[in-house]
Design a protein around this nucleic acid. Structure first.
Lengths: 217, 217
DNA sequence: TAGATTGTTAATCGATTAACAATC
DNA sequence: TAGATTGTTAATCGATTAACAATC
């Protein structure tokens, strides 16, 4: 259980913790003693080893001087702190290609989420099965959300539909929205929104390509 | 044209520039004089106005004291610096749901990209049309890449297929990879990789949900 | 002109890294 | 024990913000 007053981890720390977690999970050769050093993690991710120790200290993991960190403790603590051991209900709103792709993602359970509904406004899609989920009518949004105590809604709808749907979802009790529509949602401040902006990715890549080209002129 | 020695803009600056660009594009009421102040941008994005001026100065935009910034100049400069006026060829490798969703994205042209191929290894898919693109055989990857001078490859394939495909793509001349597969690609340092990690998004949301819950205990 | 807004220098803040003592 | 690795304090670095002069 987390101490009440612990300050929020910021985004970059969260992201590094996820990378540590993935690295340890995917590391081919586990040492038989179940130990990993901050230097090993740091080298792999091209970070300073002090930073790794600071991050682990921030989530309360203590290592053993002269030995290293207990791998299982690191993994268990990250899971605990990040909330992977919880089971929050999630819905996907918008059963198009992207919504379907996300519905097929097998990682929800691993990160503490349980997908309980895939909705679409297009009645001709309702009842069909996508990625193992029967498409539900958007008119059932409120009922299903309340019945399942939905915490997270994933929005994969056209831009113009996003804001009104976000409002319905929030009214039905959702506390977090993962928004894949290209609009900035206006939400109450007690609701977390993560906006996944595909254009930022494209822009970053375009910029690097342009720089490469310019450099060799 | 960009000065040769200008230092690379870092990720957060790039991202803010994109937000400025979007804000100005989507701003409902354009002032008739075509002027915008750093404070207006800053207020909307909840930033300090000095930061906006610094960012604009970093890409070479000069404002007029007592007046503001010329909206058209800001937009034109961001487009120019970020490379939106270029036309780089891009391919999508993996014509599954996610690849199809990306192929349907209308924003490529806006950000200097031109989608020239959608590939899949599954021969039963080859020849079908997805989002207006005929699915090509992966065996044609090298030929199509070279013929079109492909700069960017978007990888939407299973994890285990990503690394070998990245190597083929790079050998065929690609300079940037947008990787949606959940693996860290190993690439030469002159190739840009942007790894889109869906699990980081989920983890961040799980963390915030957990904190909310813990706080009210 | 007076006043509003930019541009720039200095101060602050926070995150990262370096140094090194503590420890097993 | 000696040596390796952690934990922590101090130094550094870079990004953001504050202050204010320049300007039209």
């Amino acid at each position: 259980m987390q101490k009440a007053g612990r300050p929020a981890l910021n985004k970059v720390v969260l992201e590094r913790l996820m990378h540590y977690y993935h690295f340890i999970n995917s590391r081919g050769t586990q040492r038989p003693d179940g130990i990993i050093s901050s230097a090993e993690i740091a080298n792999h991710l091209d970070l300073d080893d002090t930073l790794v120790r600071k991050d682990l200290a921030a989530v309360g993991v203590r290592g053993r001087p002269r030995v290293g960190f207990d791998t299982a403790t690191v993994q268990r603590t990250i899971r605990e702190v990040l909330g992977f051991n919880e089971s929050y209900s999630a819905i996907i709103v918008g059963a198009g290609r992207l919504g379907g792709a996300l519905a097929a993602y097998q990682g929800f359970a691993k990160y503490g989420m349980r997908l309980v509904g895939l909705f679409d406004a297009d009645e001709s899609r309702v009842g069909s099965v996508q990625s193992g989920h029967t498409v539900l009518s958007i008119t059932d949004l409120e009922r299903v959300s309340r019945e399942n105590d939905v915490h997270l809604a994933i929005l994969t709808v056209p831009a113009e539909a996003a804001q009104p749907l976000a409002e319905r979802i929030i009214a039905a009790g959702a506390k977090a929205i993962w928004n894949f529509a290209p609009v900035n949602l206006v939400v109450p401040e007690n609701v977390t929104v993560r906006h996944e902006h595909i254009s930022v990715g494209l822009a970053e890549l375009a910029y690097h390509l342009k720089r490469r080209t310019d450099d060799r002129r």
